[in-house]
Simulated scan of single mutants.
Amino acid sequence: MKKQQIYFILFLIMVAWGFNVTATKVLVENFMPVTMTALRIFVSGLTVFIFLFSIKKVRMLTKKEFIYVFIGGLLNVVAHQYFLSTGLAQTSAANGGLILGLGPLLTAILAVIFLGSSLTSIRIIGIVLGLAGVSFIVFQGSGGNAGVSAGDIFIFISILAQAASFILIKKGSESLDPRLMTGYMLVIGAAILFIISLFVEPKGLASMANHSINLWAIFFASAIIATAMGQMGYNSAIGKVGAAEASMFLNLNPFFALVGAAFFLGEKITVTQVLGFILILFGVVLGSGAYEEMYRKIKRNKNMTVAK
């Protein structure tokens, strides 16, 4: 597959992920969030396994792999999805999408702490810009802490948990196909979320009854297209073009989340949110190391051209 085709697929995945913030917002307003999320993630995991069975990529995990998958599932699925769904029930889809845009930046910070990645001056500038962008968003229209909603905090915890899981996924994928790892994490995470829902939402399953076909269409589109196909497609792209190039496309997520919130939910996009998005965008490009990677690549290509 040519790079242009992979880039086009990544672009479509970012559209799906951005709009999925809006879809999740709609779902949590109509279903009990934790129960709905558990069932949605289970459908996603089931979809991944059906695909992997069809290409004969399913196998049992070793004890070491299971540990990575289990802890990764707790962070990437249970914590991330729990706080995402409960957070979106208490904040706007626009705010949620913009805060989720911090993913690559938080991953880079954790990589510095736990994997020994270098922390350059450019990355420090990026981290400051990214955090400033989030500050603009959560404090919009207020003079202090009153501007920070519980939903905004939950969304931040959600993306922090997911970023932490990427460190474990990187370790686990050394011996395990990332797509298979994704499938196991989704199913295990869904089971744990469902157990939690029985305690925090005793009437959760009853809340899933008597809804429109359109709402169920959103549910299955979110589960199958955004989560199952999106995760597998993104993981596959990382293997083909590298993590640095693939992560650049994550910068499109907040943009499509804003578009989805405005177009489908009628949410008003403020100047403050746009300014926050711009700061987060520059923060992610600089803080995640993507700028340095691009600079090295351009310099390397230039030197090769001169050598010829």
Rank of each mutant, 00 (worst) to 15 (best):
70 F>Y: 12
55 I>K: 15
90 Q>M: 14
58 V>Q: 15
106 L>R: 04
117 S>L: 01
79 A>M: 10
87 G>V: 03
91 T>I: 03
67 I>C: 13
116 G>A: 12
113 I>W: 00
112 V>N: 09
115 L>C: 04
63 K>H: 06
72 G>L: 00
78 V>T: 10
59 R>L: 11
58 V>K: 15
62 T>W: 13
98 L>G: 11
77 V>Y: 03
94 A>G: 13
87 G>A: 04
118 S>G: 12
98 L>D: 07
89 A>C: 14
59 R>H: 14
108 A>Q: 01
114 F>H: 10
96 G>P: 01
65 E>S: 09
99 I>F: 02
92 S>E: 14
64 K>F: 06
57 K>G: 15
56 K>N: 13
82 Y>L: 10
60 M>I: 14
104 P>F: 01
64 K>T: 15
58 V>L: 10
58 V>R: 07
55 I>C: 08
89 A>E: 13
105 L>G: 01
72 G>F: 00
87 G>N: 02
101 G>F: 11
113 I>E: 05
93 A>R: 07
102 L>H: 05
68 Y>C: 01
114 F>R: 13
64 K>M: 12
118 S>N: 14
99 I>K: 08
95 N>Y: 01
82 Y>N: 05
92 S>M: 04
72 G>K: 03
112 V>E: 08
61 L>Y: 03
93 A>N: 06
93 A>Y: 08
99 I>V: 12
117 S>Q: 13
90 Q>S: 12
55 I>A: 06
58 V>E: 12
75 L>G: 00
101 G>L: 09
109 I>V: 15
92 S>A: 14
76 N>W: 11
57 K>I: 05
115 L>A: 07
101 G>M: 08
91 T>V: 07
81 Q>G: 01
117 S>P: 02
67 I>K: 15
80 H>Q: 13
112 V>A: 11
116 G>Y: 09
111 A>K: 09
93 A>E: 07
56 K>V: 11
89 A>G: 15
76 N>S: 05
82 Y>C: 00
71 I>L: 03
81 Q>M: 04
71 I>K: 07
99 I>G: 09
94 A>M: 04
65 E>C: 07
97 G>Q: 12
100 L>G: 15
90 Q>E: 08
66 F>V: 04
75 L>A: 06
64 K>H: 08
107 T>Q: 06
115 L>T: 09
78 V>G: 00
79 A>E: 03
113 I>H: 05
112 V>Y: 14
81 Q>D: 10
95 N>G: 10
92 S>P: 07
62 T>P: 10
92 S>G: 14
69 V>N: 03
61 L>D: 12
101 G>N: 08
88 L>V: 02
81 Q>V: 00
109 I>S: 09
56 K>Q: 14
78 V>H: 05
103 G>F: 13
80 H>S: 04
117 S>D: 15
